[in-house]
Design a protein around this nucleic acid. Sequence first.
DNA 1: ATAGGGTTAG
Length: 801
Amino acid sequence: MSCAAGRRGINSARNWLVEPRDYIQLIHFCISSKSLTLAKIIHQHFLKSNFTSSPAISEKLTRLYITCSQLNLARRLFNNIPEPVKKSNVVIWNHLIRGYAWEGPYHEAIDLYNEMIDFGVRPSNYTYPFVLKACSSLQVVDDGKMVHDHAERNGFDKDVFVSTALVDFYVKCGCLEDARKVFDGMCDRDVVAWNAMISGASIHGLYEEVIELVVRMQDAGLGLNSSTVVSVLPAIGESSVLSAGKAVHGYCVRRGFWSEVMVGTGLLDMYAKCGLLDYARKVFYAMGVKNEVSWSAMIGACVICDSTGEALVLYDQMRSENSVDPSPVLLGTVLRACAKLIDLRRGRQIHGYAMKAGSLVDLMVGNTLLSMYAKCGLIDDASKFLEEMDWKDSVSFSAVISGCVGNGYAEVALKFFKRMQGFKIKPDVATMIGFLPACSHLAALKHGACGHSYSIVRGFTSDTSICNALTDMYCKCGKVDIARLVFDRMHTRDIVSWNAMIVGYGVHGLGAEAISMFYQMLAEGWKPDDVTFIGLLSACSHSGLVAEGKRFFISMTQEFKIFPRLEHYLCMVDLLGRAGLLNEAQDFIKKMPFQPDVQVWSALLAACRVHKNVELGEVVSKNIQTLGPESTGNFVLLSNIYSAAGRWDDAADVRNLQRVCGYKKLPGCSWVEVNGAIHAFVGGDKSHQHWEEIIEKLEELLGDIKKLGYSVESSFVLHDVEEEEKERILLYHSEKLAVAYALLMLSPNKPILVTKNLRVCGDCHLALTYISMIEKREIIVRDASRFHHFRSGTCSCGGFW
DNA sequence: ATAGGGTTAG
């Protein structure tokens, strides 16, 4: 029937006797053509007729208005329906509840449901899915559970539709256990029912369960439809099982799903998560119909695969082709691109846009912005934004904490961690993965161990990344044995776990253990990566295992096909230099396929310092100066080399040059954790509240160790001063202050751990060897390069530092 | 003949 014919029908109906079934037929026509104008004409005609109490016509009219998205009109009509009609017809209620459940306000759906029960109308199997949808939209678990209870009591809980709606409701409200219980209790499950459960597992990140459910579903004789595929693809992407992804892609082609927007979006996302940006692009450009989500997914794909510039280009292209406002998800994706590129101009621009668009109320957008500021090192901006956020959660704090750590503000990170408890927000796995490295950085063992206990209580220790962070934390806090225990007890290890342990052994001078760990890793079928070799080579370097180091360097390319980076060459220079093979190190640098950078030369210069080679030191230092700025330590090193040779004038010249060039020496700083508080000391700084006791303790120690044969190694003093004065300058070195303070404050018998931002000073090294003897206690110093365990008069570094 | 499931994200 055409529209004109419909009009003629209505006009002629005015003049003829109209039966209820005529109204119904006309209304049906309006529903199928979604014609609101005709609907109103019919409604007016109907109000003048004799059938205003006809339930069937009222029902159809309600449906018509809802089809035309006229909820208010439908509600007005509903309100005017006589009570007996309302009582006798459940379908009218269902229509209206459906309307509210789809378009909101959602609470109207729940209110109507309650009203209908009070009215004495018994809900039908159709009613439950609608109310449940409203409940999940509002995330009101208790109301949904009440509806579940009603459905059970009315005997509808065995209905496939009702059960599936219940599964969906529980899944969307995060009650996966309840969803599983309903699903397991179902006797007949169709594809939709399986899909509800599969998507539930997928949303909750239970990827193994997703696969298991798909297998069970196929065993039950049901095939995957396009919705199943859409739920399964994220699971495959997240676990990066490319072979499975390709199989599903093939299946989609065979079943003809591949042209559907959602399937295409799922496929491109899966390929991106497996690292195949080319495949993702192919799927995207082959998609006939694209929507905002597919664009978001493609832009996100570029961000994941490190083609960040392309992501921003695509975003601009999309904005120019498309008038649709970017969704919060898209804004989040673009902000992550800005963070990766440290494009703050653009980041702030998006911030402004999000503010105007009112998108900042979206917690995800707020958190991404926070994360961007934190990652770019703008801790003040991040902090200010965090304070301004009305809603914050563990993600907000995790973003700031890991941002602080990543930019070297580990102490600030601890402050935010504490502040978070003030907001009664519980740290989760991601928070701990930011917090633990902060402890590693500060060598804050008490905090770290506390974090360990908390992780056990919360059940986080089944997480590989958490255990990796714990392993690293214990290594960096001087507790290699505990680190090894954590490593040994891990359920599943990854390459990071092995690398953490190898690096850990290495910096503690336990080269043999590092190497044995490497062979164990090979025996268990692991393939080492570039980081493994950095750990291994530096382990050899710290233990003076020159021959082994050289062997590993060769086998890394020949046997393991890993192309050495500049960092690997740096390790080798360090290895040769520490072992005193200065000429060989110099030759090695000449033969490198890279331009040596400041770090490479500095490693050699440090070796010249340790092995007292003035001539080479001068050459190296000149090389560094031609490379330009930074590297504050070099002037100090060269000056130290001259001082050690008694060439005070040269030493003074270098310091002058440094001053003229405007370089400041990075002040040496040492710190120690006492009762969970970090106490930092800078050489000669008298501001500590226990300064006098510390000096008294140091004087006493100095007197005692001299009796054992210690004498000030004056070559470690920069200036040409009297012997007694030299003693005083060295006495106030930060590492000695920190050790003295620790001896005063910490309970005896337990080892002391002091951390220093630079390499430990040679005189301090000697003094601490003696102090460990007279105090009968282990002193551990973590310096910028490695660990020194001072135990009854010896140091674990064995001179390799 | 008013019904249940799906993609991008901190």
